[in-house]
Simulated assay, not measured.
Amino acid sequence: MLKPISVCLVILALSAPCKTIFAQTNEATARQAFKLPPGAELQYSIKAKQSGLPLSGSATVKWQIADQKYNIITETHAMLVGKILDASSHGNIDEYGLAPDKFVEKRFRKPATTTSFERDSKTLRFSASTETYVLKGGEQDRTSATWQLIAIARAAGEAFKTGTEWKMLVAGRRDADPWTFKVLGQENIKTPMGEMLAIHVSKAPPADSKDQQLDLWLAPGLEWYPVRLKFSDADGDYVDQVLESVKK
């Protein structure tokens, strides 16, 4: 079965004691200048290897902003199986950028999970676990994180250069973890829309982790939208998405 495909799906296997310590000591994300891209619907083709088997499919990402609010809806389909993932993130836009209220994920043959950013009580909660975190500003979920990174890159301009690192706290289905995105350099990416110059950014797992690695290629000439995303597992399995079309 194809593994669910979205920037929100990197799961870090931390022990319960470590998560409890982090929940009590997580630091506020540093404020960064940001410039959100215009709303769009992005269509991707997918090629993957899962448990040694080649697979293909498609994904649609709807990015919407209006009246200081945002909404992101992702749907992923696999050949012969159908829809294998629904994921959504919605919330407001504040001084940090995206400020999620709810992150909902529905995986193939599994119940939906909800991650709630309760702004009034400044508490991050999960329907799939009893973990809680104090909201201090700048926290993202695994769907909004890509778009927050895009907004930071658009504002940073030439400062978003090779070797720089960009950090944020990212919540998943059961817990939250610090993510570090590192800029690796420029590459030309072939897509059905033509060859595009893109900035390669990588979110690698910790050295002692078997977590997925996430690579993104952001295209400055196309509003910094991700023209390619790749999720790589330690066992050699991967999911590779390439942009097919953009509707603004």
Rank of each mutant, 00 (worst) to 15 (best):
M1A: 13
L2P: 15
P4H: 09
P4R: 06
S6E: 08
V7W: 04
C8D: 13
V10M: 09
V10C: 02
L12P: 00
A13P: 00
S15A: 14
C18P: 00
C18G: 03
K19H: 06
T20G: 11
F22H: 02
A23I: 01
T25Q: 12
N26C: 11
T29I: 12
T29V: 15
A30C: 02
A33M: 10
F34E: 05
K35I: 01
G39D: 11
L42G: 07
Q43V: 06
Y44E: 04
S45D: 13
S45G: 15
S45F: 01
I46N: 03
A48T: 03
Q50M: 06
Q50S: 14
L55S: 03
S56M: 08
G57C: 08
A59Q: 15
V61K: 14
W63S: 07
K69N: 13
Y70M: 07
Y70I: 04
T74I: 15
E75W: 03
T76V: 15
A78K: 07
V81E: 01
I84T: 06
I84D: 06
L85E: 09
L85G: 12
A87I: 04
S89Q: 05
H90D: 11
D94L: 11
D94T: 07
E95H: 12
Y96K: 10
G97C: 11
P100T: 05
P100H: 05
D101M: 08
K102L: 13
F103H: 13
K106A: 12
R107G: 10
P111A: 06
P111V: 01
P111W: 02
T113E: 08
R119L: 12
R119N: 04
D120T: 13
F126H: 06
S127W: 08
T130L: 10
Y133P: 05
Y133R: 07
L135K: 02
G138H: 07
E139Q: 12
R142G: 15
T146A: 15
T146Q: 11
L149P: 04
A151C: 08
A153F: 02
R154M: 10
R154S: 08
A155Q: 05
A156Q: 09
G157D: 03
E158T: 11
E158P: 02
A159V: 01
A159H: 08
F160W: 13
F160T: 02
F160A: 05
T162F: 01
T162H: 09
G163T: 02
G163Q: 07
T164M: 09
T164F: 00
K167M: 02
L169N: 11
P178N: 12
P178F: 10
T180N: 05
T180R: 12
K182I: 02
K182P: 00
L184P: 00
Q186A: 02
E187P: 07
M196C: 02
K203N: 10
K203A: 12
A204M: 11
P205S: 11
D208F: 11
D215Y: 08
D215T: 03
D215I: 01
G221C: 01
W224M: 12
Y225F: 14
Y225M: 03
P226G: 05
P226N: 05
S232D: 09
S232A: 10
A234P: 00
D235L: 08
D235P: 02
G236K: 08
V242W: 03
V242I: 14
L243K: 06
S245A: 15
S245E: 10
S245T: 11
V246A: 13
K248E: 11
